[in-house]
Simulated scan of single mutants.
Amino acid sequence: MVDMCEGAHEHFTENPEEFKKFVEEAEKPLYPGCHKHTKLSGLVKLYNLKARHGMTDNCFVDMLIEVGDLLPIGQELPSSMKKYRDLTSCPKCGLSRWKVTKKNVVKKEVPTKVLWYFPPIPKFKRMFKSLETSKSLTCHSEAQIKDG
Rank of each mutant, 00 (worst) to 15 (best):
M1N: 04
T38K: 04
M55S: 08
C34S: 05
L30R: 12
K102D: 11
D62F: 08
E14V: 03
S96E: 15
L77G: 03
C90V: 03
K125F: 13
E66S: 02
K107F: 01
V23I: 15
P78E: 05
L71R: 04
T13K: 13
C139K: 15
S41N: 09
K107A: 05
F128I: 12
K103I: 01
V67Y: 04
K135T: 04
G33P: 08
I145P: 04
G7S: 09
K36L: 14
K28Q: 15
T88H: 15
N104I: 00
K36P: 01
C59Q: 08
W98T: 04
E142L: 10
E6Y: 15
L70A: 10
E66W: 11
P32Y: 11
L49F: 11
P16F: 11
D62P: 00
K36Y: 07
P111N: 07
E10L: 10
F22P: 00
I65E: 03
K36V: 13
T112A: 14
L137T: 05
M55K: 15
P111A: 01
M127Y: 09
R52T: 01
K108I: 01
L70H: 11
C5D: 07
E132H: 09
V44M: 12
L43M: 13
P111E: 02
R126P: 01
D86K: 15
A26R: 01
L64F: 05
H140L: 07
V23F: 08
G94Y: 04
W116S: 12
K113M: 02
K125I: 15
M127F: 03
P72Y: 01
K129D: 14
V61T: 10
P120M: 11
E142M: 05
P29L: 07
L43S: 00
K45W: 05
F128L: 10
Y117K: 09
L64W: 09
F19E: 04
P29W: 08
D147L: 01
F118S: 12
P29I: 11
A26T: 00
S134V: 09
S141I: 15
E18Q: 06
G54Y: 04
A143E: 09
E76S: 03
T138W: 00
V100Y: 08
C5N: 10
S134M: 11
V110H: 14
E132G: 07
P29N: 08
C90M: 09
P78M: 12
Y117D: 01
L71T: 05
A143Y: 06
H53E: 05
K28V: 04
T112Q: 13
T13C: 13
V100Q: 14
L95A: 12
E10D: 13
D57L: 02
